[in-house]
């Protein structure tokens, strides 16, 4: 039984925390159109891991510090609004990735050791990590839900938030710092190259399925938890890095959410309403051969047209009129 294995228990706990926490921050990241920021911060955190490997320190705390520093610099660059900010961010992202690999390589810890941080690993979650992941995860959840309304206001309408007296710069900075912490929470299980997928994809899937922002966050947390746990368990049997499987599962959720969301939307909206046109349409019998009687389930879509119901036939609206159908 895999649940009795100690390393699997640690991996499952770490994955569960990452799965729940990532979408809460991800919801705001998606809202602010910063979906790729998480990816960049993951690259920056790699420099932290490289530094830790080179100096013999514990990777997780160093990665937290480096990622937060990177987040602050990126946010300051972004909010400066300068055209060069985009290029500067790219330099930071690739600089982080390259520095990490270089530092790890210099002390003889080549891509092999680093890969467990890049793609996640079941075996690498140590007891100390669980504590740090737990504390960070709890802090993120407390901050996100304690300041949920403020973060929502700033993400949905920055100028308006300013006129509420909210410190917009502070909250913007808080969102990216929270993203940096989330990345380090997830790096053991999902891996730094794919962490942002767990922040973004469950939110995207949930947005297809739900109406309302808070509800979408809750559903995204559920999807994140499911994907993370299923990914860890599956990767044990497949002997694959858990990160890849977790991300593949979130993407499957997203793909399923596309048609499912459309169907839910149709059911919620019910019949589509077409405003009645004035004056009433002239009497034009439909030319299409309409042998059957329109009714619920006749295969043609029904729309409410003013006082009566029309049926859509080849892009025309048919309305019943004394035993035949009129064009409407």
């Amino acid at each position: 039984m895999i649940f009795t294995l100690e390393f699997m228990q640690r991996a499952l706990i770490a994955a569960a925390i990452a799965g729940v926490v990532s979408p809460t921050v991800g919801a705001f990241i998606v809202q602010r159109r910063l979906s790729l920021l998480g990816d960049g911060l993951g690259h920056v955190a790699i420099a932290g891991v490289g530094l830790a490997l080179a100096t013999g320190m514990a990777p997780l705390p160093v990665a937290v510090v480096v990622a937060i520093l990177g987040a602050v610099i990126i946010e300051l660059l972004r909010s400066s609004g300068r055209a060069s900010a985009d290029t500067a961010m790219a330099v930071i992202f690739y600089g982080g990735l390259a520095t990490g690999i270089l530092l790890a390589g210099m002390v003889g810890q080549g891509a092999g050791t680093l890969s467990s941080y890049l793609f996640g690993s079941l075996l690498s979650v140590e007891a100390l990590d669980i504590w740090l992941i737990g504390i960070l995860g709890a802090a993120i959840v407390v901050l996100v839900f304690g300041l949920f309304k403020q973060l929502f206001a700033v993400s949905s309408d920055e100028d308006y938030a300013h006129t509420l007296g909210l410190n917009v710069r502070f909250y913007n900075l808080l969102i990216v710092v929270l993203a940096a912490c989330t990345i380090t929470v997830s790096m053991r299980t999902v891996g730094l190259l794919m962490v942002s997928a767990l922040m973004v994809v469950p939110v995207a899937a949930s947005n297809n399925l739900t109406r309302g922002f808070s509800r979408s966050v809750l559903v995204a947390m559920g999807l994140g938890l499911f994907s993370a746990l299923a990914g860890v368990i599956g990767s044990f049997y497949l002997d694959a890095p858990p990160g890849s499987l977790i991300v593949v599962i979130t993407i499957i959720c997203f793909v399923i959410s596309l048609p499912l969301g459309k169907q839910l939307l149709r059911r919620r909206r019910g019949l589509q309403v077409v405003e009645a046109v004035e004056p009433p349409p002239p009497h034009i019998p439909a030319d299409e051969d309409c042998e059957h009687v329109h009714g619920p389930g006749c295969g043609h879509r029904a729309v409410i047209h003013g006082s009566h119901v029309d049926y859509l036939v080849d892009g025309h609206r048919h309305a019943e009129h004394e035993g035949h159908y009129d064009e409407h």
Partner: peptide
């Protein structure tokens, strides 16, 4: 307003 899926109540609540 940049959150199209937010409900009227959520927007008004801010």
């Amino acid at each position: 307003v940049k959150v199209p899926q937010a409900t009227v109540r959520e927007i008004v609540s801010t």
